[in-house]
Each structure stands twice: as structure tokens, then as C-alpha cells.
């Protein structure tokens, strides 16, 4: 097991390096730079700006400098907001994005599993249809429609929740629900099909034949087996949600890091592009690793590190 973890760690580092290098190359190959705008700066100003961010040096040198800083976890200074470092931006923003994400994920996973189970148990009956209609709505209504709808009715008209802002728990309710909609629908559908599959298995019949109470069959035999596909997608799903949503954060005015993923590219804010990409990639790689470990815990048949199991 330790050897497996060690090996995975090396691979993780290599992957991260590859991602950083690729991002660096791609980023510098798109036209325009951080200082391209309607205003054309005088030459001296432009040179000063470029010097400040090491952009006057040849690209390979910039790359090496960047790797050197990266090794010490220094992600550099944002070019667009020169008084802030990328580290600060992530430190300030990530906890907010993560809180929103955890809440959304908790809603999505718990409600999704429950709804999926109900749908599978009552297959082709009313509850199933209701759940599936909800799931289709969840998948097809984008959150930039949901967000403003919530704001208009729950916020402005009925005054149940604050329209936007961040700090209070009430302020986080609407964005959490809006953000949870899509993953909730995904989890529901996945859980339903996987549960249906499990319910048809022989060992379920055996368990029932043994005279186990229905609830025990469900919790012990069906749920544990049916949940594996859901666990698989929780890794990437949670990273996608935890690192923030550009749309939800913008609509509800939440100081998270979601917007940096989009805005840094439009601004060609090189240090922020690199910073958030590496942060995201690192988290994603790490979460996948955790999910792999979790398989071993949930399903004893999966043996980590042993070749026969593959």
C-alpha cells in the first residue's frame, strides 16, 4: 500500500508538471498580451510593465523562472490587479468557493442518492416519473437561468433569502441550490440505473429469500453495491464544484475563485491563468487519488497496487 502511494505521488507530480508546461505554452501562443487594450501605452510604459512581470525575457527563460517560483509555491503577482498576489487571491477566494461547493455537493449527493433509489425501487411508476422529470429539468435548465429566477422570486418578490452577497448563511442558500441542480440530476440518474442493475442481481434475491427485512436488503446489499459509480464521479464532480462556478459566483456576487478561470484568460493575466490552472489540476489529481483509495474501502474486491486486480 505504501509503495502504491509513493508511486502514485511521483506520477501525480509528473502530471502536474506536464499540465503546467502545456498551459504555459498554450497561454503564450494565443495572440495578445496582458497589455493589449484600446489604449496604446507609450513604449516606455509598456517596457516598464513588461520588465515588472519578467515578460521582457525570452519565453524559455520565463518558463524556467516560473518553474523555479512554482517549486517554492510562489504563484506570482496578478498583472491585472498589481497589488495582489495569486497566492492571496486563491487563499481569499477558495474557502468561499469551497464552502459553496461543499453545501451544493452535500445537497446534490444526499438528495441525488435518495431520489435515485426511490426512482429505482418504484421503477416505471409515478415516483420514478416524477424523479426523472426533475432530473431532466436539472440537466437542461442552465444555472444562469436558475440564478436570476431565484433572485427574482425568492429574493426580490417574496423576500425569503437575500438577493446576493456573501457572509451570512442565508446568503449562501440560493447559490448552493442553484449550483447543486446539475450534479443532483446527474447523481439521481446514475444512482437510478446502477440501483436497477443491482436489484436484478442474484444475491439480492438470495438475501430476500433468506428472509432479510426489505430495509436491510436495501441498505446492506443494494446500496453498497449501487453506490460505486456515484463514488467514481464524486471526485471530478466535487473539484468542478469546489473550485467555484463562474456563473453562480458572478450572479450572486460571491468572492470566490470561479471567475478567475474565465477572466484571467480574457485579460491574459498570465500569472493568474497559471496559478488557478495548477491549483485546479493539483486538486483534481489529488481527489482522483483519494477516490481510488476510497474504492478499496468500499469494495474489498478492489485491491490497490496489485496487478491481478486490474
Amino acid at each position: 500500500m505504501l509503495r502504491y502511494i509513493g508511486k502514485r505521488f511521483v506520477i501525480m507530480l509528473a502530471t502536474l508538471w506536464l499540465i503546467a508546461s502545456l498551459t504555459f505554452v498554450l497561454m503564450h501562443s494565443i495572440p495578445g498580451d496582458p497589455f493589449t487594450s484600446e489604449k496604446k501605452f507609450p513604449k516606455a510604459t509598456l517596457e516598464n510593465l513588461k520588465k515588472e512581470y519578467n515578460l521582457d525575457k525570452p519565453i524559455p527563460v520565463q518558463y524556467l523562472l516560473y518553474l523555479k517560483n512554482l517549486a517554492t509555491f510562489d504563484l506570482g503577482i496578478s498583472i491585472k490587479t498589481p497589488t495582489r498576489t495569486v497566492n492571496e487571491m486563491i487563499e481569499d477566494g477558495f474557502p468561499n468557493s469551497a464552502q459553496l461547493g461543499v453545501q451544493a455537493l452535500a445537497i446534490a449527493v444526499s438528495a441525488g442518492i435518495l431520489m435515485g433509489m426511490v426512482a429505482a425501487i418504484y421503477q416505471s411508476r409515478m415516483p420514478d416519473y416524477i424523479m426523472m422529470v426533475l432530473a431532466v429539468i436539472g440537466i437542461s435548465v442552465p444555472n444562469f437561468v436558475l440564478g436570476p429566477l431565484f433572485q427574482k422570486y425568492l429574493g426580490l418578490e417574496w423576500e425569503i433569502f437575500p438577493i446576493a452577497g456573501w457572509g451570512d448563511f442565508e446568503q449562501s442558500v440560493m447559490p448552493s441550490i442553484a449550483l447543486a441542480f446539475l450534479p443532483l440530476a446527474l447523481v439521481t440518474r446514475l444512482m437510478r440505473s446502477s440501483m436497477l442493475d443491482v436489484l436484478g442481481q442474484d444475491y439480492i434475491r438470495t438475501a430476500r429469500a433468506k428472509g432479510l427485512p426489505p430495509f436491510r436488503v436495501l441498505s446492506r446489499h443494494s446500496l453498497r453495491n449501487a453506490i460505486i459509480p456515484v463514488v467514481t464521479i464524486i471526485g471530478p464532480l466535487s473539484i468542478g464544484i469546489l473550485t467555484g462556478s463562474f456563473v453562480i459566483e458572478k450572479i450572486f456576487s460571491i468572492p470566490g475563485i470561479g471567475k478567475y478561470f474565465v477572466e484571467s484568460v480574457t485579460n491574459r493575466d498570465y500569472s493568474v491563468i497559471m496559478g488557478v490552472t495548477i491549483f485546479y489540476a493539483g486538486l483534481l489529481i489529488f481527489m482522483n487519488f483519494l477516490v481510488d483509495l476510497a474504492y478499496g474501502l468500499i469494495d474489498p474486491r478492489i485491491k490497490l497496487g496489485s496487478k491481478e486486480a486490474r
Binding site: 464552502q99 461543499v102 453545501q103 452535500a106 444526499s110 451570512d168 474501502l297
Partner: peptide
Amino acid sequence: TGVLLFALLFVLATVTAGCGGP
């Protein structure tokens, strides 16, 4: 452990949700 994992997730969710504070 499987059940535990989920229990953990819920606890995490409620704790962090509470963290918003006044």
C-alpha cells in the same frame, strides 16, 4: 467505512455551512 465516508461528508457540509456565521 462506506457509511462512515458519507457521514463524514454530511458532517463536513454542516460544519462548513455553519462557518458562514453572522
